[in-house]
Design a protein around this nucleic acid. Structure first.
Lengths: 211, 211
DNA sequence: GGCCATATTGCCCTAAAGTGCAATGCCCTA
DNA sequence: TAGGGCATTGCACTTTAGGGCAATATGGCC
């Protein structure tokens, strides 16, 4: 398998630091993209074919580091952040970590500490990407279902018999079978077990059996 | 439903602070237990009927706060920690948060900030307890299965037909049916769908179908 | 109006699942 | 050595699931 090249986005308003980090990360084998401000980063193309993460200075003119992080999380962006700071304090670091930062390093920091944090951020991003991709595939299949088929699906994954479903929906068993067949086909599975597993992954709840 | 009374364990080597926190938390409606050291806490009875959390001073003689936190996480203890500190620094707070602390407050802290953090810790503990209870119930049922039944289970939740399972294990289809019935009975479910959901919750993997 | 997607259902047949009953064989423990 | 737990299997029967084929009905769109 070809070695994948991960990207590290460096956002710091200090040119010296940007270039110093570029040197370090370049030689560590990453693709590096630097930005002098959060705005500059947001306007750029953040798409990457492989996993990526952000090394982010807390103190930035304009949108600061913590605000950018918040922006990313509300956008449900899967990229993880490693903070670096020159004049941070504890509340700041706690807030960053609460919001999912991988690490929060004070300048001058140890190169290895940064590289470790970056590796962790990349790994988490990689897993989040994979998870996201999987959910998208399932969702695309779910979107193929008609309203009625979705309804039948929720009965099927509750483990109900065709007869019971037919009774609950006041339709014939034959009709339930017809829908059920369509559901399995569109979801690209050939067993209830697989169907349950797929629906669990995207949080589809079975109908309540008790009432 | 009766109002549940949560417990807050306060661990701080400063008597004044312990009593001040007791006052605050008492009047906030919590059951409070105070300890002067990590060791004292560890030797105590930490069982509670309702949810609980720990307010923990970082600087403690003997086992310090971070070490106690580590101890708890390795023991897979579901109680969440809210740190308080007089002389903490950023690396310390980051380490605490990385290990799952709910918050890390510097003295003198805002009472409301502490109460908020405690509420969050209690809620997380409550959810963890519920999750744990559920897993225990499932595990107890799994423990009733014989080795062979567990094996059949992993084939069943892979969505394989009795015929295929029989073939894979080189036994008759009738035998598979017998085991399958036992599995459903012991797991207290009456459909494959429910069985799959249970096994997903405790991380039991289906057999690989491809090979 | 005509076409199409969707929902519905019947008839009929095959395959698979689920069960009851009974029996055999192995291994371990009291 | 007897009894218990477990794995195994056969036979026969009922219940479900799954499909093929065909038909009806409804509502929307061109």
């Amino acid at each position: 398998m070809a070695e994948s090249i991960s990207t590290v986005f460096v956002i710091d308003d200090d040119y010296e630091i940007r270039e110093s980090l570029r040197l370090l990360l370049d030689s560590a084998g990453y693709r590096v993209k630097t930005f002098g401000s959060a705005e500059e980063f947001l306007e750029s193309d953040q798409r990457t074919s492989e996993s990526a993460c952000i090394v982010l200075d807390v103190e930035l003119a304009g949108l600061n580091g913590l605000e950018l992080q918040r922006e990313l999380t509300t956008k449900n962006h899967p990229m993880k952040v490693v903070f670096i700071t020159g004049h941070g304090d504890i509340p700041m670091s706690v807030r960053a970590m609460k919001h999912g930062a991988v690490d929060f390093l004070c300048k001058p920091f140890d190169d290895d500490a940064l590289l470790d944090a970056i590796e962790e951020a990349l790994m988490k991003n990689s897993m989040a990407r994979e998870h996201c991709r999987e959910k998208n595939i399932i969702q695309r299949r779910l979107d193929l279902l008609t309203a009625r088929e979705s309804e039948i699906l929720r009965y099927v994954i509750a483990g109900m018999l065709n007869k019971q479903i037919a009774d609950a929906l006041n339709i014939s068993e034959r009709t339930v079978k017809a829908h059920r067949k369509q559901v399995l086909k569109k979801m690209e599975v050939d067993s209830i077990a697989e169907l349950v597993r797929l629906t669990e992954k995207v949080g589809i709840k079975p109908v309540n059996v008790l009432p």
